[in-house]
Design a protein around this nucleic acid. Structure first.
Length: 798
DNA sequence: ACCTCCCGCCATGCT
DNA sequence: AGCATGGCGGGAGGT
């Protein structure tokens, strides 16, 4: 059907035979029951240790891996077999190898830490499944099997799966079982996440944090307030600041247990992390900022060092997986203070309103509150939950759902079988390589595999666009359809929103209609998030829209030299933190230090920072900027803004804020289908979304940067990280984004209903359509912010 | 010395 | 009680 990818139809290793073709809909569940038997007992088992002994990382294994890697077919074949038969084969080999080795040798043979990295593991995991699986086939994933095959603890698999789940690339079927969706839903998911991110005003939050940091650096007095506000605001409302998980209709969590923790971290964190990229203009997010924001939502107060560190650790985990998915890439932002680890989005550009629904309504920045989430509003309208705390995945709802699901599950979940087939093959990947190189090598292998397929992919892409999308279109896009649904609601919000300051209902499940036929997305917003803080307005007021024009080619401009110069210049002004770089993260004066944990460096750096004079200046500058509006580079952002999408987009790009009027217009047009989602009428200059960052940095992107930016969108699938980086990315295949993700599954609907229900009828709010069209265009632009530039260097690849 | 982040203990929650 | 999940952070490999 849809896809063209080679892999497409390849099923994950099919475990057996069996299997039901897909989970498509509800049926799937039922099916599961059937299926499960195959799998065997569920228990989980294995601890890796055992496995480890056998270790795959022997040269031999490695060889196999390489070979298999090279040839997809082989790989697939192996996988299949492996799954089945395999169990015996490889493992044994491993064991044998192991046997020979003793002591040192054995140890040597053991994979180095890097070889065991989550990123590599994730690559292996991903290599097992087609990017665009044929829905008709059974795409079940048995965690135990995978763990065995990959020779890792199950715990690690959970890490990967949780992140994939957050992107709806997999969904849990039952205990120990997941269904592989691949990238079919990816664009939708990203669109939805972007919408939510916008609604949550992450861009603004980022800005604020940066701003705050700067201020703090310079001016201690102010510092806290901003952050505090933000945080409080977020947290505030309901009291519980839980994080909400954004769900897609068809992909809801089916497992009760999962639901219980649904709002918990890794998944949500992953989504939020992604949101940060999607809403920030430069699309470069530093771990520090991400951690702060994530923590902020939870508990700002708790900002203690340990918490911060923990968050950072988790972000690394998530980042590794996202990197494997090629959605982000690690870069370093260089600032005066030093380099900061950050990640750059290399995934598909998501059109402004991708999901449609959320319309990202462009309010002016100042309207933050107002803007609040359109979704929220919609939701409100729909459900009229006002006053109530948000639903976001309110516990009650969750329970409800759980109940329902549990029932289902019971049915389904027979003990899943832990099956132990070992498969080995895949596992072999591991060969002992020297660290980084090893990883790279491993990755390259994988990439090769993928690449081999890539050509097709590209083709696919195009196809996807045309064909895929269209077909799908009905589902996803139908502007018209959406309009109907959405428009009304949206509109109201617009009008209303501004008026309504209070976030009454906070989190509401918002459903986005994806496709006409398709299921809408249900997004559960947190109240807090939804609301976003108001206060900031004053603070940040910012936003000025602007700038879009400025976009230029990013990277180029910035080179190191420039950078420095810029920096110097900047410093005085103080401007900015480059987005990502805030140097000093937390700087809350003394307070911060204590708290700041990981951020430590920042603090240190901060100290280094400029002198007070500059500070003041900086502030002034900031203000000026704000007023001016100049660029809104997202905080994180670096100066360079990719203009990714089309120029036109640029302005809209981040979209964060626009003038209401324009926003409305755009919105309307989009929904009407008069214009593509990605395009917006520029009312205001581009908003970068973020209210200004005081300083701007030009970022020079490292070599890659250029490529990256451009590249990001386009290649959707191609995995090749390292290789591409340089230029490959640039390839960008054009705008094509991924094929449209539409997932054909009807099943979703059913599921959806559950969730929606709580709220009420679910009406779709926005439409999500996502798609893209042009989403990615790759032109790159750079915004300049005044002074500084950031240098982004891409580093390693994973 | 700092950046990453693996590893696995142990809490949580369902069965 | 047992098992599946997954939060969490110590501590170690890498650079």
């Amino acid at each position: 059907m849809e896809n063209e990818k080679e892999n497409f139809f390849f099923e994950p290793h099919k475990r057996g035979l069996m299997k039901t073709p897909l989970k498509e809909s509800t049926a799937a569940n039922i099916v599961l029951a059937e299926i499960q038997p195959d799998f065997g007992p569920l228990t989980t088992p294995t601890k890796p240790k055992d496995i480890s002994q056998g270790e795959p990382w022997t040269p031999t294994a490695n060889l196999k891996m390489l070979i298999s890697a090279v040839s997809p077919e082989i790989r697939s074949r192996d996988q299949k077999r492996g799954l089945f038969d395999n169990a015996n084969g490889l493992p044994e080999a491993k064991d044998c190898l192991h046997e020979h080795l003793s002591g040192d040798e054995y140890e040597k043979s053991q994979p180095s830490r890097k070889e065991k990295s989550l990123g590599l593991l994730c690559h292996k995991f991903l290599a097992r499944y087609p990017k665009y699986p044929n829905p008709a086939v059974n795409n079940d994933i048995c965690l135990d099997e995978v763990a065995e095959e990959l020779n890792v603890e199950r715990r690690r698999i959970y890490d990967i799966v949780n992140v994939l789940e957050s992107l709806h690339m997999v969904s849990r079927l039952a205990k120990n079982r997941y269904t592989w969706h691949g990238r079919h839903n990816l664009n939708k998911t990203l669109g939805a996440l972007k919408s939510v991110g916008e609604e949550n005003k992450y861009a603004e939050q980022i800005m604020m944090i940066k701003k705050k940091e700067y201020e703090q650096e310079f001016d201690f007095s102010k510092s806290y307030s901003i952050e505090d506000h933000i945080i409080k605001a977020n947290a505030g409302q309901n009291g519980h600041t839980d994080m909400c998980f954004v769900e897609l209709p068809g992909v809801e969590f089916r497992a009760a247990s999962v639901n219980s923790r649904k709002d918990k971290s890794l998944r949500v964190m992953s989504q939020k992390f992604v949101m940060l990229f999607l809403v920030s203009t430069p699309q470069i997010v530093s771990l520090e900022i991400a951690a702060k924001i994530l923590i902020g939502e939870d508990h700002v107060e708790d900002l203690d060092k340990s918490k911060f560190k923990t968050k950072i650790r988790r972000l690394y985990d998530i980042a590794n997986v996202l990197s494997s998915l090629e959605l982000i890439k690690k870069v370093h932002v260089t600032e005066e203070r030093g380099r900061k680890p950050a990640f750059k989005w290399t995934g598909p550009e998501i059109s402004p309103n991708p999901s449609g629904c959320s319309p990202v309504i462009p309010f002016t920045p100042s309207d933050l509150e107002v803007r609040r989430s359109s979704k929220e509003n919609c939701a409100k309208n729909l459900f009229s939950t006002r006053g109530k705390p948000n639903f976001t995945r309110h516990p009650s709802l969750i329970k409800l759902v759980k109940t329902i699901e549990s029932d289902r599950r019971k049915i389904n979940s027979a003990p899943s079988s832990p099956i132990k087939t070992n498969k080995a093959e895949s596992s072999q990947n591991s060969a002992p390589f020297p660290s980084k190189m090893a990883q790279l090598a491993a990755i390259c292998k994988m990439q090769l595999e993928e690449q081999s397929s890539e050509p097709r992919k590209k083709v696919k892409v195009q196809l996807a666009r045309s064909g895929h999308c269209k077909p799908v279109a009905p589902l996803d896009t139908p502007a018209s359809a959406e309009l109907e649904l959405t428009a009304p609601s949206l509109i109201q919000p617009l009008g209303v929103v501004p008026l309504l300051p209070s976030p009454l209902s906070s989190a509401v499940p918002v459903i986005l209609p994806q496709a006409p036929s398709g299921p809408p997305y249900a997004i559960y917003l947190q109240p807090a998030q939804a609301r976003t803080m108001t206060p900031p307005q004053s603070l940040s007021p910012t936003v000025c829209p602007t700038a879009s024009s400025k976009a230029m080619r990013s990277k180029d401009s910035a080179d190191a030299t420039t950078e420095k110069a810029a920096k110097d210049a900047a410093k005085p002004s103080t401007c900015t933190r480059p987005g990502s770089l805030l140097s000093v993260p937390e700087r809350h004066g003394a307070k911060a230090r204590d708290k700041e944990p990981a951020g430590e460096r920042g603090s240190k750096r901060a100290s280094a920072l400029e002198d007070s004079g500059s500070k003041k200046k900086f502030k002034e500058d900031l203000k000026g900027l704000e007023n001016v509006s100049a660029l809104m580079v997202s905080p994180t952002s670096v100066a360079a803004v990719p203009v990714g999408s089309s120029p036109a987009l640029t302005s809209s790009h981040p979209v964060p804020v626009q003038n209401p009027s324009s926003a409305i217009v755009n919105f309307t047009l989009q929904h009407l289908g008069l214009i593509s989602p990605s395009v917006q009428v520029p009312a205001s200059p581009g908003p970068g979304t973020v209210p200004m960052s005081p300083r701007i940095e030009a970022v020079s992107v490292a070599p890659e940067s250029a490529g990256t930016q451009q590249g990001r969108a386009s290649r959707y699938d191609s995995p090749v990280p390292g290789q591409n980086q340089p230029n490959g990315q640039s390839v960008a295949v054009t705008g094509a984004q991924q094929p449209v993700p539409v997932t054909p599954k009807g099943s979703q609907l059913v599921a959806e209903s559950f969730f929606r229900t709580p709220g009420g009828p679910t009406k779709p709010m926005g439409s999500s359509c996502v798609d893209f069209d042009g989403a990615n265009k790759t032109s790159v632009g750079t915004l300049f912010v005044p002074q500084r530039k950031l240098e982004v260097s891409t580093e390693d690849v994973h």
